[in-house]
């Protein structure tokens, strides 16, 4: 990107992505306020915040391969924001469960975590996201040095956990979790291929 037009585009790019990433929440609020959710709105809120958390995880995983394919730096500039949005929607998803669905009934909450594998996995995935979000600042990257990259390999584990969480939560129609499982597999496979003998190993991920 060169010239004045390029500079303007760059200045607007991140805020634009930021507000776009808030649209799913805006939609949800609008649907809620205009009575466009289903007869069981808490279930809808749970589903929609959960699916957006997963989508943002996938988008953040897409950043590195996209940078390689396009040869341009902009995907990497967005990676942190996308990851943080995944965390944001995951927080909403978890809070919906704790507050709206269970209304702080800790007995039920703890028994669900202990007894229901899909909930256990979901919580594990969330807990794995916490240190990633907490160390997402520039300062933390500097402070942790090479350990930062090791820690952030969790970003490969989380979507796997989330997809299993999703899969185990559906009753019979596994088409949607299957689709996401394939996307996760694909995004992880591109990374493995880089380390295969035939693959080019140019830069770090």
């Amino acid at each position: 990107m060169a010239g004045p037009a390029g500079i303007t585009a760059r200045r607007w790019f991140k805020p634009l992505v930021f507000f776009t990433a808030l649209l799913p929440l805006a939609w949800l609020l609008a649907d809620g306020l205009t009575n466009h959710l289903s007869a069981n709105p808490i279930d809808d809120i749970t589903d929609r915040t959960g699916i957006w958390a997963l989508r943002f995880l996938l988008l953040s995983l897409l950043a590195t391969p996209l940078r390689r394919w396009t040869g341009r730096p902009w995907p990497l500039r967005l990676r942190r924001m996308l990851g943080l949005f995944a965390f944001f929607y995951a927080c909403l998803h978890l809070l919906t469960w704790l507050v709206l669905d269970q209304f702080f009934n800790w007995t039920e909450i703890l028994s669900d975590i202990a007894k229901r594998p899909f909930i256990t996995l979901g919580l594990l995935a969330f807990l794995a996201l916490v240190p990633l979000a907490a160390t997402s600042t520039r300062a933390a990257v500097k402070r942790l040095g090479p350990q930062w990259r090791q820690l952030h390999r969790l970003a490969y584990l989380v979507p796997v956990l989330v997809v299993i969480h999703f899969w185990w939560s559906v009753k019979a129609d596994i088409r949607e979790p299957l689709l996401y499982a394939m996307l996760v597999a694909l995004l992880l496979a591109v990374r493995l291929l880089r380390y295969a003998p035939m693959g080019a190993s140019r830069s770090s991920s």
Partner: peptide
């Protein structure tokens, strides 16, 4: 008797907030 994936102790009556 719980369903393996969810407790059956409580239910949400459609239209109500508290289970």
């Amino acid at each position: 008797v719980d369903h393996p994936r969810w407790s059956q102790r409580r239910e949400r009556r459609i239209g109500e907030f508290f289970k």
